[in-house]
């Protein structure tokens, strides 16, 4: 029962990644693309979790945490770039 459910879940993940990729390509503004890429990262993270059950291994579970942290850092960097135009600001010298 679980095995069939996991395969269906992987298929639905790839379907939703494809739909989100449409938003990445078409999205009218830049924050649209950033939000869609963040969602793709989250989808990949849950796909890794499912694949680690399918392959019966515990070796991939660190990748979940690392991918979450990287997606968050990427979103914050995009945010700073959209709002201010730079990612890392210099010290003001006025």
């Amino acid at each position: 029962m679980i095995h069939t459910l996991l395969l269906v879940a992987l298929a639905l993940f790839s379907l939703s990644i494809a739909i989100t990729l449409y938003r990445v390509i078409k999205g009218p503004t830049m924050p649209d693309r950033a939000i869609a890429l963040d969602t793709i990262g989250v989808n990949l993270l849950s796909a890794i979790a499912i694949v680690s059950i399918v392959l019966q291994t515990k070796a991939y579970l660190e990748a979940i945490l690392i991918l979450g942290i990287l997606a968050f850092i990427g979103t914050i960097a995009f945010t700073k770039y959209i709002e201010r135009g730079v990612v890392i600001e210099r010290k003001s010298d006025r």
Binding site: T29, P31, A34, I35, D38, V42, L45, A49, L61, E62, I64, L65, G68, I69, A71, F72, T75, I76, F78, T79, K80, I82, E83
Partner: peptide, 27 residues
Amino acid sequence: RILLGVLFLFITGPVGGHIMSRSSYIA
């Protein structure tokens, strides 16, 4: 580690959405 991942996602997911829509409003 999975529980840590759940906690981290619970904190950072809404923060990411909020900060992205706020910066795009300002932009």
